[in-house]
Amino acid sequence: MFEPVLLSLQLATSATIILLIVSIPLAWWLANGSSIFRSVVWATTALPLVLPPTVLGFYLLLAFSPASGLGKLIVDWFGVQLAFSFAGLLIASVIYSLPFVVQPLQIGFERLDGRTIEAALSLRANWWVIITRVIFPQLKGAFLVAFTLGFAHTLGEFGVVLMIGGNIPGETQVISIAIYESVEMLDYAKAHLYSVGLLVFSFIVLFLTYARNSFSLKRKGE
């Protein structure tokens, strides 16, 4: 009963942690460069925003399947099969939610006030102090939004998961798939339970994030 919920939370949490690790350097680089190569990378990371999930799902399915060259290589080298497994879902989620984490961070980095860092440097502050006391306070909001959107978006994923997950309870049957299946099986009670739960949870998370951001803006204004 609660297995899809747990699985969804696990997937979203793991994906968000990986996403933050990947996105911090990527967003920093995107915020500070200006080559044609940067535009290429920027456009690539934003692709999941515009493409239907079926495109990503289709190519990942081909790539992950042991019937394909790459999929077989992964099985031979690492002993894991990515298609229809939790590991595969995790990789797909990281790709799929990438723009939702990169973009807020990128905006945060772009808005970073360089003069505050220069001032701190001129006062001979060491880098640890600069990062924790000067840079991070300016980026707290951006990190919070990136974390929330990455988490919430992974939680709400459906198309990609349906295509490469294969609806296996305990492995790939996340909450969105469980809802789809309950509706198909005419088990509306279960579908309601999951849907209302997800609705309330998502609202609370978004509300807390936005409320916190607007309060901190207000405080700054005073």
Binding site: P66, A67, G71, Q81, A83, G166, I168
Partner: peptide, 8 residues
């Protein structure tokens, strides 16, 4: 399709 793609 899933089975031929390696579904467990």
């Amino acid at each position: 399709t899933r089975i031929s793609m390696g579904a467990p």
